[in-house]
Amino acid sequence: MKIRDNRAWWLVLPVFVLVAFSAIIPMMTVVNYSVQDIFDPSTRYFVGTEWYREILADPRLRDSLLRQFLYSACVLAIEVPLGIVVALSMPRRGLGVPVSLILLALPLLVPWNVVGTIWQIIGREDIGLYGWLINHAGIDYNYASNPRDAWITVLVMDVWHWTSLVALLCYSGLRSIPDVYYQAARIDRASNWAVFRYIQLPKLKNVLLIAVMLRFMDSFMIYTEPFVLTGGGPGTATTFLSQTLTQMALGQFDLGRAAAFSLIYFLIILLVTWVFYTAMTHRDDMR
């Protein structure tokens, strides 16, 4: 049982001050912009909810929102099962363990624009291995001009980049299962599937929630990798929310609309993550 003591606030205070400086002040600026029409620093008008109404009716936002949800759904649908399979295939002991851990973690350590660069190179038909192989296998593939190819390339890139995270999470979940569980299963002559379904999967629930939450958050905020790889193109095929937003804010300097967009964007992530978080802490409380 935790001790009730409000003096603990003193320990949290530095974090609070630091994060308040880099979160609350900027957030207030965004809120401020979202309700005003700004021509220059001295000429500004209060416009109320006009930007919000405009942005919600904007087909560009709706398109990229739809694209974003589809993308995040694909990412989760591929990476979570694949991550579990990889984690189950991890060696249990010996030199293989640290080696595969480090190799698995490699993609996570690559700066995000380098991830884009790597796939930009390897997907090209003239100098890239994959692009060359696919084209020589007789399939017409060009991620720069064909929307479908671009979409697939971005997705494969994300799978390459982040499945390791899911795999490492699941691996640490699996390691926490005591050997006696497996021995009991062997005595009962449980099938591999039964071991997975009734021993491993329940133990993985906690880490899987974290994995799904992190992957949802990060795939929903994705910017750098597709920006480097395809620049959001061809057309707007791979323009996700963050890129639409940066175009609006920095490209067209459309502050009011971009600010309203930001807040709606943030709220969506907040809402979905809150669901995962409550599910997770609820389980923590029950322990």
Partner: peptide, 11 residues
Amino acid sequence: MAPPAVFLLPF
């Protein structure tokens, strides 16, 4: 969870 893109301009 805050998308960095949201904070670009204010930062």
